[in-house]
Design a protein around this nucleic acid. Structure first.
Length: 556
RNA sequence: GUCCCUGUAGCUCAGUUGGAUAGAGCAUUUGCCUUCUAAGCAAAGGGUCGCACGUUCGAUUCGUGCCAGGGACGCCA
């Protein structure tokens, strides 16, 4: 693998540095980066530029001295065959050019590892909980939830592939004000259906699905008269929550997002648990009473104002059960908590960090990722959304209109901190404007060649690839070798979008190779090696797209 | 007013955590299918990296201050 070779080369540089500059007790970190221009080789090191000032020597001279020592050390090491040449270039870069042998090694690795190719131990089995979507069960999922779902799902997939032990969790807010309003909305619609004149206030949920639920409720319970609805409020509310939760689960399921754990506020934020955690905070002196309410001194932990936990009317605020929930997360043994929220919750971050610290945990062990909104466009016109008025595009609509693959891909295309413009018409197009197809097409092309090869009884080799030596083949091999690095970058950034970019670049390099060279060649020895290259490409496309939750069609 | 996100080609965006001549796609112009999928490839044009200072060998990247767009700031959830 290229990343291990990168590590080994780095060790050699460090060792050479120690030998050639014994006087130097400390030196800046040695970094081997991948240059953006391939004429600068596979890896580039800037250490000479960094040392120029402390050593008061021109960087070019320093680099030249260092290279002598590096070359000597490489000759004596097992990686000698993998390094073709080492250059010293203008300001003072040391560039490493790998030999084709180094790249053939990755090809054998990919073929041997198959669907496990790209796995890394980077995460060291750290237990991570990723909570995302967590929409109130008060209506179908919106497009905002859809992006969070796509991001959370892909992120956890990547984290697990790079060596973390990550779990997907959905927190169901099945209690509180919004849920009461939901119950009331359904109840009013039910009365209406039974011929009553009702005042349906602005606060109530306006969507048609409320009326549908009311109808189903009446049917299920065989209620014919408005009078029979009296004293049914709790029953109706529970029905509505259960019903909508099923809708949400089905939507997510169809979207390919499957949660490991569904937590319910009604089970975790019980009266007993809330009292216990408030007692705990009270004993620590983090609570006080003012104006008939109970306040949490979150300003002690960096928040800009204190927060009410128990209102003067005796009810708890939204924060209070959330305190219990976050304690619960840590009690379950997670070493890191990741919450994926919408931008409307960003003001909530200092509060929850304060909570975590007050509970005695490390505030840095909770990380909040704010996924910016996706603005939907149709023919260039933005579509505005409001849950309350029931005017919004749902996840369901996006899914049925553009398909799961395009939807998931589009939601992941931009880094999560950036606003996303999502044009439904563009995502629907089966043209080169649409980047999903560009990548899937590469995958499908491979299968097409594969079928042809089978007819001719040609098979891929598994070792010894000395015939792969033109520019396009070596570029493709190089890119394949960078797969694991791209995944680790995603894990570090806690954002899957770098994988999307990687796959797009891989597709570009693949298409270029495909266009210029024929795989099924008169020369069967060459064909066997190129088939191996194709198989390795297929594996990387498949592994990458699988992590993103995008399908890998064999025919298009 | 405080805080968060964003500002790179006509449009949508990359830029691998400070590197070398700032890159793709779309749109425009022009080539490439009797041979494995043209949903593809190749080429051309297109730039004050919002503005100004600062940090240093080097800044699109880091810091400060402005400018512009979007969003958040409840005893709502």
């Amino acid at each position: 693998m290229l990343s291990t070779l990168q590590e080994q080369l780095k060790e050699v540089v460090v060792q050479s540095l120690r030998e050639s500059h014994k006087s130097l007790k400390e030196f800046p970190p040695v970094i081997l980066e991948i240059p953006n221009d391939k004429k600068h080789g596979e890896f580039s090191c800037n250490i000479a530029l960094q040392l120029a000032k402390p050593l008061k020597q021109p960087p070019l001279d320093l680099a030249a001295q260092l290279v002598v020592s590096i070359q000597k050390n490489i000759k004596a090491s097992p990686i000698n065959a993998n390094v073709q040449k080492i250059d010293v270039v203008r300001p003072g870069f040391i560039n490493f050019h790998l030999s084709p042998q180094a790249l053939y090694g990755t090809l054998s690795d990919v073929l041997a590892q198959g669907e496990n190719y790209g796995r890394a131990s980077f995460g060291k089995n750290k237990k991570i909980q990723v909570e995302f979507v967590s929409a109130n069960p008060t209506g179908p999922l919106s497009v905002a939830h859809a992006r969070q779902a796509a991001v959370g799902d892909a992120l956890v997939n990547i984290l697990n592939f790079t060596g973390f032990a990550a779990k997907k969790e959905f927190y169901v807010n099945d209690e509180g004000n919004q849920i009461n309003i939901l119950g009331r909305s359904v109840e009013l619609r039910a009365q209406e259906l039974l011929g009553e004149k009702v005042e349906f206030s602005e606060d109530c949920y306006q969507g048609d699905y409320i009326r549908d639920m009311a109808r189903i409720y009446l049917d299920q319970n065989k209620i014919k008269k408005a009078a029979d609805l009296s004293a049914k409020a709790d029953h109706i509310r529970q029905f509505a929550v259960d019903y909508l939760l099923d809708v949400i689960k089905k939507e997510l399921d169809d979207f390919g997002v499957h949660f490991d754990v569904w937590s319910h506020q009604s089970k975790i934020g019980t009266q007993g648990n809330i009292e216990a955690v408030l007692d705990f905070l009270g004993e620590k002196g983090f609570l006080y009473e003012k104006e008939g309410a109970l306040w949490f001194k979150s300003t002690d932990f960096g928040d800009d104002k204190d927060r009410v936990v128990e209102k003067s009317d005796g009810n708890y605020t939204y924060l209070t059960p959330d305190i219990v929930y976050h304690q619960n997360k840590f009690k379950r043994g997670f070493e890191k908590i990741i919450n994926i929220w919408g931008p409307d919750h960003h003001g909530y971050i200092p509060r929850i960090k304060a909570v975590v610290e007050a509970l005695g945990y490390d505030r840095d062990d909770v990380e909040v990722l704010i996924v910016q909104l996706a603005t939907l466009y149709r023919n260039g016109q933005p579509i505005s959304m409001s849950t309350r008025r029931g005017q919004y595009i749902s996840l369901r609509e996006v899914m049925t209109e553009v398909g799961v693959d395009a939807a998931r891909f589009f939601f992941l295309m931009r880094r999560i901190s950036a606003h996303l413009d999502f044009d439904l018409e563009l995502a629907k197009k089966e043209t080169p404007e649409n980047p999903v197809y560009y990548i899937q097409y590469a995958h499908a092309r491979i299968y097409s060649v594969w079928d042809k090869a089978k007819e001719l009884n040609l098979r891929a080799k598994h070792a010894d690839f000395s015939l792969l030596n033109n520019e396009e083949e070596l570029d493709l091999l190089k890119k394949i070798g960078q797969f694991s690095g791209a995944l680790v970058l995603c894990a570090e950034q806690l954002d899957p979008y770098a994988l999307v970019n990687y796959l797009h670049e891989l597709a570009t390099i693949f298409h270029r190779f495909y266009d210029k060279h024929r795989v099924i060649d008169q020369d069967h020895a060459l064909a066997a090696e190129r088939l191996a290259l194709l198989d390795a490409s297929r594996i990387v496309f498949a592994n990458g797209l699988r992590l993103l939750g995008v399908s890998t069609p064999k025919k298009m």
